[in-house]
């Protein structure tokens, strides 16, 4: 009997520890630059010299028309003031680096090839349900190509929706420590 109790105690201890484990910080190289997650907006802006458009758009236009955009955990009221200074959202914590490209023939496929070779893993078509406060049941299903670098870092790739005829984009998004439902929501933004 006592062995059973000891076994259960050990099992619960392991499970409890597993639940408490959080993601460690990660760094990756993309477009000859090293990017780190998590990071505060302030750190990202200062390190990568990002530009700003109010109320909360931090970005930079780099070579080959590649745009870098940061996405972060925002809070209620963060965007109410449409002309706030850039420092207001500096304490927010990043969850994504977004790399946005104009869509031309071959861009999407070459990005996939490059990223798969870099991380030595494959993109996998991933289906799930979005988690959002305003979504109808019919709007929840999603499917995107995700490459899981580690349990804490996922890369998604997507292009503009079909309804968008002009100024189409391809977006590569590095997402840090986000649940699948949330990744399904944010993958559709900035396209």
């Amino acid at each position: 009997m006592k062995y059973i109790i000891i076994t259960f105690v050990a099992l619960f201890a392991v499970l409890f520890k597993a639940q408490q484990e959080t993601c460690e910080s990660v760094s990756f190289t993309f477009s000859n630059t090293t990017w780190s997650l998590p990071s505060s907006v302030k750190e990202a802006v200062e390190k990568h010299r990002l530009k700003y458009k109010p109320p909360g758009f931090y970005y930079d236009l780099q070579q080959d028309s590649m745009e870098v955009i940061v996405d972060y955990h925002f809070e209620t009221g963060d965007f109410d003031n449409e002309y706030q200074p850039k420092e207001i959202l500096f304490p927010r914590v990043l969850h994504s680096y977004i790399f946005r490209f104009p869509e031309h023939p071959g861009v999407y496929d070459s990005l996939i090839t490059t990223i798969e070779q870099t991380f030595n893993k494959k993109f996998i078509l991933t289906k799930g349900l979005k988690v959002g406060r305003t979504l109808l049941e019919s709007e929840k299903p999603f499917e995107y190509y995700f490459l899981t670098v580690s349990p804490c870092l996922t890369i998604g790739i997507a292009s503009s929706p079909a309804r968008k005829k002009k100024d189409r984009k391809v977006v590569v998004r590095f997402m840090y420590d986000l649940p699948l439902g949330r990744m399904g929501v944010i993958m559709g933004n900035y396209l």
Partner: peptide, 23 residues
Amino acid sequence: NKQTVEDYLDDHNLGAGNTDGGS
């Protein structure tokens, strides 16, 4: 209403509308 609109934009692939006033 502000909460409703911001949530809706974020959920429906319009998140850039929250962060970029010129988008």
